[in-house]
Write a protein that binds this DNA or RNA. Structure first.
Lengths: 140, 140
DNA sequence: ATTATATTATTGAGGGGTCAATGATTGATG
DNA sequence: CATCAATCATTGACCCCTCAATAATATAAT
């Protein structure tokens, strides 16, 4: 006995598939994973920021944040130190090398995003963004 | 010095975030990961199917397919045997227990998908599907 | 027939993510 | 001020994924 799949359900799986394809492609183009890129990007914006604030912005688990930053620190793209006024916090800061590298792959990231949304109108981008945010709300 | 992020780039990261949230939620609701669910779903459709055909349908790496099916076999939701007419292939078949379990969580999956697309019109679903497929084409 | 080529499945290494438990530090409260 | 509760970071266990290398089998080509 077979059963059918609704359009909604098809979309759910399409999402997963698309994402599985997106991540590796992005990484091949920029040499950074999406998460690492986001992390470094935020560090450019904030200069100094605690891990827990980064966590809230990036929206991945604390554990993943810690491990990414430890690795980025080992790679010397980032420096970390305790917050003197609150010793629970670790404050993260981009090194010169980190800044250089994230700036270097700006172009790659942009052209990747352009390729991804080739032939999308502004209205479509807007509507897509809107729908994704609504989905996010719906499953919250 | 800061730099800005285009709408396209914002969408790229929104995709990743949304997906990171989608997977775990789905799993908590159905007790199957999205991939396992898809695998079992296809087995309901095909009754018997080779791993390589499954791989092409589900669109994840061969290695992941092998590991999922080995685990599902250990859980006795699936049986596997060599194809007598082509010994390279492994043919996969759903067990009664596997059938029972996948059918059991149909309801959970449906209500999850409904929740996800709450207040989406048919046109929106259609347009979303269309856009996702175009993105998939664009990055292929 | 024998050799070269392609297909299928498997494994190992490594990256990314979650959840749960732990330890340290800070803040609030009786 | 002593204790209890919240916050932050870290670690371990485990899941999912990709890529690359390998082994086995089948197919094609000389």
């Amino acid at each position: 006995m077979k059963f059918t799949i609704s359009e909604q359900e098809e979309l759910l799986f399409l999402f997963k598939t698309l994402n599985n394809q997106l991540g590796p492609k992005f990484e091949r183009n920029t040499n950074f994973s999406l998460s690492r890129f986001e992390l470094l990007y935020q560090l450019v914006q904030y200069d100094e920021i605690s891990q827990s604030r980064l966590q809230k912005i990036i929206n991945i688990d604390h554990a993943a944040i810690t491990r990414h930053l430890k690795q980025l620190e080992a790679d010397e793209l980032v420096s970390r130190r305790r917050n003197p006024t609150d010793n629970r916090e670790t404050i993260v800061h981009l090194t010169d090398e980190g800044y250089k590298q994230i700036m270097n792959c700006q172009q790659d990231k942009s052209s990747f995003a352009n390729q991804m949304f080739l032939q999308f109108s502004d209205e479509e981008l807007q509507s897509l963004m809107d729908m994704l945010k609504r989905i996010q709300e719906n499953i919250r």
